[in-house]
């Protein structure tokens, strides 16, 4: 691995970590469990578009484990892992089809992050009626996805000019 790439990955992990911390500090609480902006996903999507799938995935997992042990408990980490993995897989597939722009991929990521969390929440608290949160979470996922997608597009455009991996 080139030194440049190691430094870049480290930087992204640190950034994702800080974003998670900011969201932890200022929770946008609208009374629905699982609805949030997902600032850290900005870093994941930038990684997905400037590096490769494998690196972006590792980045996503390291972030979740780090944040899980630092700010949350094991249960929250489980929700994050489910949401993180599902949304990542969906984003990779969506990106590979080349039919969507970065914003579209980000929207899918946002929506499926919420879907993944709710599935695990239903399993953990053994209450099927949590599925009633799904419509609201889908819409909030779209909103978060669009915001992150627009930001991610701007960042990616600027980073791509710099040759990170030779």
């Amino acid at each position: 691995m080139k030194t440049k790439k190691i430094a870049y990955l480290g930087l992204l992990i640190a950034l994702a970590f800080v974003f998670s911390y900011i969201e932890f500090l200022i929770p946008v609480n609208i009374g629905i469990p699982g609805a949030k902006l997902g600032l850290a996903n900005l870093v994941i999507i930038v990684a997905l578009y400037t590096l490769n799938e494998r690196d972006a995935f590792v980045l996503s997992m390291i972030r979740i484990v780090l944040v899980g042990f630092t700010f949350a408990n094991l249960a929250s980490m489980l929700y994050s892992l489910a949401g993180g993995i599902l949304s990542f897989v969906v984003m990779v597939i969506a990106k590979k089809t080349r039919k969507l722009s970065l914003t579209g991929v980000s929207v899918l990521g946002g929506v499926f992050h919420n879907v993944g969390q709710i599935i695990v929440a239903i399993w953990v608290v053994k209450t099927v009626s949590l599925i009633y949160y799904l419509p609201v979470l889908m819409v909030s996922g779209i909103a978060a996805g669009v915001a992150i997608g627009i930001l991610g597009g701007m960042v990616t455009k600027r980073i791509k000019g710099i040759h990170l991996i030779d």
Partner: peptide
Amino acid sequence: TKKNDILLI
């Protein structure tokens, strides 16, 4: 792709 994005949403 932009059109597809809107369609997706």
